[in-house]
Design a protein around this nucleic acid. Structure first.
Lengths: 115, 115
DNA sequence: TCACTGTATCCGCATAAGCAAATATTGCAA
DNA sequence: TTGCAATATTTGCTTATGCGGATACAGTGA
């Protein structure tokens, strides 16, 4: 019961929905990538990621100093369904399109080796 | 964007999840039916129903003094998917089973003509 | 019209959640 | 080990949300 409401609560914030849209589009990204796309301070992004991690909606993996986040690959039916719904909502979202555009531009200019 | 987060926010409360489970099981019910099953005061139940109505997750219909609530029949893909997810979560929920049991007992004793 | 019942909304309060700066932690390299 | 960069967590503040009693509104019947 608490798990389910926690799951929905973690999706009831626009920033967290945006993070999932961005990860669905961009695959694996580190915190500073997300900071650039979301245009939000580090502590804010990190806290939202912790929220999503606790709900089982993202996986994290440390690579040196960088923490990379991505959507989980092996999930139960409920989370899979929910991620499908979120993807559906992103299809005709202006915000999702803007974030995808900003991510593409950011990745194009990003130099190798930097975060 | 706001619509989506509002949708998830309306599902981030245990009482509202319970209401949807109860309606999935019991069909069309009025506010006092739900008060009996949820064991919550009228103002609380009504407010949660308003939340769900605004999110498009329940339909209401007045019949005399009574307001009947049920799940919407014709919904878009997103709401249909979300209701399916909620149903899925109810399958192995002890709370859902308890509420179903209480609803059955309540309907058995309820006299015709009373709310 | 008036009284009554069922439901919706308002109000004040308590709790929860978001924000961003500050601080702590982690891992790498010198 | 020391210093630095990336990230996580803490802190203090502000805002949002839930609660239930009180009140307002709507429909029915006398």
């Amino acid at each position: 019961m608490k798990t389910i409401t926690q799951l929905f609560k973690s999706l009831s914030d626009p920033t967290r929905i945006r993070i999932i849209w961005i990860l669905q589009f961009g695959g694996e990204l580190c915190v500073c990538d997300l900071m650039a796309v979301l245009e939000l301070p580090q502590s804010t992004v990190s806290r939202h990621l912790a929220y999503l991690r606790n709900a089982g909606l993202v996986d994290d993996q440390r690579k040196g100093v960088w923490m990379y986040y991505r959507l989980p690959e092996h999930v139960n039916d409920i989370i899979a369904e929910i991620l499908a719904v979120v993807r559906l909502t992103g299809k005709d979202s202006e915000q999702a399109a803007m974030d995808q555009h900003r991510l593409k531009a950011y990745l194009r200019e990003k130099r190798a080796g930097t975060c």
